[in-house]
């Protein structure tokens, strides 16, 4: 008989370290002391539970969720779909997935974004959904544009969608960004370059999924998210006072 135990230790070699001088903003915002390693207790293996009362059915359709009646967002229509899995390869069901992105011109609907590309009146730029019992999720949106940012004078972000996922335990909490296959900005992006592991970078690149494309309508990209997995407790010695 096995019961789920702690989460596997996070593999910090595939994540960006806190201090990455090529991404300038990280310099003053990165802790300098070592983190204290903490074995999981009840507050780590548990996390918020979300249900269909929390969101609306149309929240995952960014082409229409902010559009005026009869209108829709401008841009290349895409389906973004995939599964949320854990490191054991098991689906993560009923977990909240939230995304946000720039519009087709690379402009965010945000009071702090002053890029000269225009706001699309029919595009908000965020969506959310719950995975189904197989860990599957999907969104409909438009492909975001590249945009400039003040890292170096001539820095441009590759097209990307920001993605937030919960899992079942608070230590699985993850925010990341997904990119698109074939984008020429990928190898020169200072934010992607914070990741030390090339395979971990590849795992952030959504692939064209021709089979899931809707003919004459929308191109599909597939993106699977992997969250930390949990141990099965087999023959565990319980240390006193721990």
């Amino acid at each position: 008989m096995t019961t789920p135990g702690e989460f596997y230790q996070r593999d910090r070699t595939l994540h960006p370290p806190a201090h990455t001088p090529g991404y300038k903003t990280s310099v003053a915002r990165s802790p300098r002391y070592s983190m204290i390693s903490l074995q999981n207790s009840v507050g780590e293996i548990t996390g918020p539970v979300f249900g269909h009362n929390d969101i609306d059915a149309g929240d995952n359709d960014l082409i229409f969720n902010y559009a005026k009646p009869g209108e829709s967002a401008i841009g290349e229509r895409i389906i973004l779909h995939g599964r949320v899995l854990d490191e054991n390869g098991r689906p993560v069901p009923n977990t909240l997935v939230e995304i946000w992105q720039a519009n087709a011109g690379g402009r965010y609907r945000h009071k702090k974004d002053t890029y000269l590309a225009p706001i699309d009146p029919n595009f908000g730029g965020c969506g959310r959904t719950l995975t189904d019992e197989n860990g599957y999720y999907f969104f409909r949106t438009i492909k975001p544009g590249a945009y400039p940012w003040r890292n170096y004078v001539n820095s441009w972000r590759p097209a990307h969608i920001h993605l937030s996922v919960f899992g079942s335990g608070f230590v699985q909490r993850l925010i990341t960004q997904l990119y698109f296959e074939g984008d020429p900005f990928l190898p020169i992006c200072p934010i992607i370059q914070t990741i030390p592991d090339p395979e971990a970078v590849d795992q952030l690149i959504a692939r064209l999924d021709l089979n899931a494309t809707i003919p004459l309508d929308s191109v599909a990209y597939k993106f699977d998210v992997v969250l930390r997995g949990r141990r099965s407790t087999l023959f565990e010695n319980r240390l006193e006072g721990n």
Partner: peptide, 28 residues
């Protein structure tokens, strides 16, 4: 085993996705 998806910064516009009212618009 699969490997965990790498983290990336939430960026300056995290409010759009997770607190859109603060970004300046009501959507949900």
């Amino acid at each position: 085993y699969l490997r965990e998806t790498a983290s990336q910064t939430a960026g300056p516009y995290v409010h759009i996705g997770l607190a859109p009212g603060a970004a300046g618009f009501d959507i949900y």
